[in-house]
């Protein structure tokens, strides 16, 4: 990521879109067949990665939440190489779906957070406990716009941070390099997505809209 100006642009776009698009949560089962189907349509390599993810999610969904966080954080931090959107997608900012990220094997901070968020939801972690957080990160002595996923075991508790800069799962207090700015999740917003169609004037406002449609089509 580069520069505070881009950071704020992204912040604005991301926040607006996230809320506008109306993510909604709760009671949504992960549709595994259509997930694998969508992966198979992309490439064999994607299918292998998708199967690995599916098996991991299945395996960890019986374990406690922190173990699920550990496993999936590690899964994506290991599989996905950090790359700017401009290199991967040829665009300044592109929010890729989990399958797109798996297919490329590359992604930037949002792509990590998005993939982790949806995978955890698929693994049964309540949306209310997850928040995507815009942060200002001190990285190699520079200030950077960055996005992480935060997990709140209790609403008032100190969150655990899922990040790609520091691959390990750490509590927020242990992350002095991160300064939170704004957070959001899809809680209470999903119903807007259900009716999303080409006729909805809210559609096509951004790539985030595309992302949601893509994510939905991928079975999440």
């Amino acid at each position: 990521m580069s520069g505070p100006r881009l950071f704020f642009q992204q912040l604005r776009a991301g926040i607006g879109l996230a809320l506008l698009l109306g993510w909604a949560g709760g009671g949504r089962a992960w549709d595994v067949p259509s997930f694998l189907d969508a992966a198979a349509h992309r490439s064999p390599r994607t299918l292998v990665a998708a199967k690995a993810l599916q098996q991991l999610v299945e395996r960890v969904s019986t374990q406690d939440e922190e173990q699920r966080l550990q496993a999936l954080n590690q899964f994506f931090n290991q599989r996905i190489a950090f790359r700017d959107d401009i290199e991967v997608w040829g665009q300044a900012d592109y929010w890729a779906s989990p399958l797109e990220t798996l297919e490329k094997g590359q992604g930037d901070c949002e792509d990590y957070s998005i993939a982790k968020y949806f995978s955890l939801v698929a693994a049964g972690v309540p949306e209310a406990k997850l928040r995507m957080v815009y942060v200002r990160a001190q990285f190699r002595g520079r200030s950077q716009a960055h996005m992480v996923l935060a997990y709140y075991a209790q609403p008032q508790a100190e969150p655990l941070i899922l990040d790609n800069l520091v691959p390990e799962l750490r509590p927020a207090s242990a992350r002095g390099d991160l300064q939170p700015v704004f957070s959001f999740n899809s809680e209470g917003l999903w119903q807007g997505v259900g009716s999303a169609s080409a006729g909805n004037p809210l559609a096509r406002l951004s790539q985030w809209r595309d992302l949601l449609a893509k994510v939905k089509a991928e079975g999440f």
Partner: peptide, 17 residues
């Protein structure tokens, strides 16, 4: 129309919506 909803936070702490 539906009400517009957004999360409020205070640092790392969630502060409702």
């Amino acid at each position: 129309t539906q009400a517009g909803v957004a999360k409020v936070s205070n640092g790392w702490n969630a502060a409702g919506s």
